[in-house]
Design a protein around this nucleic acid. Sequence first.
DNA 1: AAAGCGTGGTA
DNA 2: TTACCAAGCTT
Length: 351
Amino acid sequence: MRDAAIMAAELLGWYDRHARELPWRVAPGAGSAGQRADPYAVWLSEIMLQQTTVAAVKAYFTRFLELWPTVEALAAADDGQVMGEWAGLGYYARARNLLKCARIVAGEHGGVFPDSAEALRALPGIGPYTAAAIAAIAFDRPETVVDGNVERVMARLFRVETPLPGAKPELRERAAEMTPHRRPGDYAQAVMDLGATICTPKRPACGICPWRDDCRARAGGVAADLPAREAKKPKPVRHGVAFVGRRQDGAWLLERRPDGGLLGGMLGWPGGGWDGSGVQSPPADADWRDPGAEVRHTFTHFHLRLALRVAELPADCAPVRGEFVAALRPSDLPTVMRKAFDLARTALDPA
DNA sequence: AAAGCGTGGTA
DNA sequence: TTACCAAGCTT
């Protein structure tokens, strides 16, 4: 294997030629040339990209930047609107922490993001990866960025056969050895691009990899088998019920879910039995019908089968729980709740 | 420290 | 259809 500095330079050359154009990205070389990316945009993109694909993030990122172009604007935003705009992207604690972080930066840091990984790390929603990524990309700090892509690239390059997550410390060390002090922001994005486009989880394109002649896993013919992972536990199936009620004027009966748990802070249909909240009785007195179809949805750690009850509610309906939402935008609902909405609307308005 | 926390694309 | 996986963080 060649010297780390030479390999880093090689990768940067590849990045100069092949960097993807992404809405939050400045051109290769710009970061170290003093034309740095907006730290707010870098932060926003990195939070959205946590465990989330580039394809899914693009539209959300553009929308958020339109609605809230600065951290001060986001800090002043309405919580419910932010949660609604985040709906569909998943991991909703990120949106709650996004607001917390924006308000700390706007209120306690004069609207200026800290420029060191250590200080960034202290903000809500910013962990080791995100702190290093912002410091490197927005402030050109030589931090080592370790995400799933980097772990995969290092596991292959050094043929680390220890399964994840046990291999994390070793992979971090290997990644640190490879990190250059020149163009750290471009290098961070280059390694991640390499993992996303060439050193992919399945069928890596080793033939066109700038590190192909250095890679120990490729030499041994085991690149596609790394990194190894501990076996995952099977997901159990949980059952629940959701009450989807529509008032005569078209308003829907929803409730704001409590912060902290599953889908915390999001709008949802009254019900339960699947999320630790217990089975609830109907949220209003009405003739609840069973449409005969159920919602199927898979969360991180369980499969859900959600029975539905639908009802038309009178104009003077006084619900036991929840509140009526006029002009509901289905896109404001988390995906499982939007699935229930789609099914219920079919039942309420048969074609 | 292990578990909780979403979703959509892909094979 | 099912299982795997992705630019992780929090408790």
